[in-house]
Amino acid sequence: MVWTRAAFSPLVLTLPMDDYLAARVIASERKLPALLVFAALRGLRAGGVLVIDGDAGPEHPDPSAYDPHRDVVAAGVARATRTALDALIELEGAK
């Protein structure tokens, strides 16, 4: 399960991480919900590709310790970009 919430700064707003962990949430995404709501309000199609590159579990309780400049992040973003482009090509071909 992926949890989404338009909470751009967990350092400002405390998130109920214990509840999410108990619900077996495996990822947290904070920007895609706004895109999906905007698209739905405008009657547009939208989607997203998520890269899970960290662990928000109890052993990593400090969100300020996250480092987005690691090789694993760059590799995940590259794979996600290829996946998104492949999906767009498939959608174009399905017309």
Results as ranks from 00 to 15, higher is better:
residue 41 L to K: 11
residue 58 P to I: 04
residue 36 L to G: 00
residue 24 R to N: 13
residue 33 P to Y: 11
residue 62 D to S: 04
residue 28 S to G: 11
residue 22 A to R: 15
residue 14 T to I: 13
residue 24 R to G: 09
residue 19 D to H: 13
residue 48 G to H: 06
residue 41 L to N: 10
residue 48 G to K: 03
residue 35 L to F: 06
residue 64 S to F: 05
residue 73 V to Y: 07
residue 49 V to M: 05
residue 25 V to R: 10
residue 37 V to M: 05
residue 55 D to H: 09
residue 43 G to S: 03
residue 53 D to M: 07
residue 57 G to D: 04
residue 20 Y to V: 14
residue 24 R to M: 08
residue 52 I to E: 06
residue 34 A to M: 10
residue 53 D to I: 05
residue 26 I to Y: 12
residue 35 L to C: 09
residue 31 K to I: 06
residue 57 G to N: 03
residue 26 I to M: 13
residue 52 I to R: 12
residue 63 P to V: 05
residue 44 L to M: 10
residue 57 G to A: 03
residue 14 T to S: 15
residue 68 P to C: 07
residue 32 L to D: 00
residue 58 P to C: 03
residue 67 D to E: 12
residue 34 A to G: 11
residue 38 F to H: 06
residue 25 V to T: 14
residue 45 R to I: 07
residue 51 V to T: 11
residue 61 P to F: 04
residue 56 A to N: 01
residue 22 A to T: 13
residue 21 L to T: 11
residue 49 V to P: 00
residue 42 R to K: 10
residue 24 R to C: 12
residue 37 V to E: 02
residue 18 D to E: 15
residue 42 R to A: 09
residue 36 L to E: 02
residue 45 R to P: 08
residue 61 P to L: 06
residue 38 F to V: 04
residue 40 A to E: 12
residue 35 L to R: 01
residue 52 I to V: 15
residue 21 L to N: 13
residue 34 A to L: 11
residue 57 G to V: 03
residue 61 P to H: 05
residue 55 D to W: 04
residue 19 D to S: 14
residue 49 V to A: 06
residue 38 F to Q: 07
residue 69 H to A: 12
residue 54 G to Y: 00
residue 17 M to V: 15
residue 54 G to F: 01
residue 61 P to W: 06
residue 44 L to H: 08
residue 64 S to R: 09
residue 48 G to F: 03
residue 66 Y to P: 00
residue 73 V to K: 03
residue 48 G to M: 07
residue 32 L to F: 07
residue 43 G to P: 01
residue 68 P to M: 07
residue 22 A to E: 15
residue 25 V to F: 09
residue 64 S to I: 04
residue 58 P to Q: 07
residue 27 A to G: 14
residue 45 R to A: 10
residue 16 P to S: 13
residue 24 R to D: 15
residue 29 E to I: 00
residue 53 D to L: 04
residue 56 A to T: 01
residue 52 I to W: 05
residue 49 V to G: 02
residue 20 Y to M: 15
residue 20 Y to T: 12
residue 57 G to S: 08
residue 72 V to N: 06
residue 29 E to K: 00
residue 42 R to H: 12
residue 24 R to Y: 12
residue 45 R to D: 13
residue 45 R to C: 11
residue 36 L to V: 09
residue 37 V to L: 06
residue 44 L to K: 04
residue 65 A to V: 07
residue 40 A to I: 04
residue 23 A to M: 14
residue 69 H to M: 05
residue 65 A to I: 05
residue 41 L to M: 10
residue 21 L to Y: 14
residue 59 E to A: 12
residue 18 D to T: 15
residue 43 G to D: 03
residue 37 V to W: 02
residue 53 D to R: 03
residue 58 P to F: 04
residue 33 P to H: 07
residue 59 E to R: 10
residue 28 S to N: 11
residue 46 A to G: 09
residue 54 G to H: 04
residue 33 P to N: 10
residue 61 P to Y: 05
residue 25 V to E: 06
residue 34 A to P: 00
residue 48 G to D: 03
residue 67 D to Y: 08
residue 40 A to S: 12
residue 38 F to N: 08
residue 64 S to K: 04
residue 69 H to G: 05
residue 47 G to Y: 10
residue 70 R to M: 08
residue 41 L to A: 08
residue 67 D to Q: 08
residue 19 D to T: 14
residue 24 R to A: 13
residue 42 R to G: 05
residue 46 A to N: 04
residue 29 E to F: 00
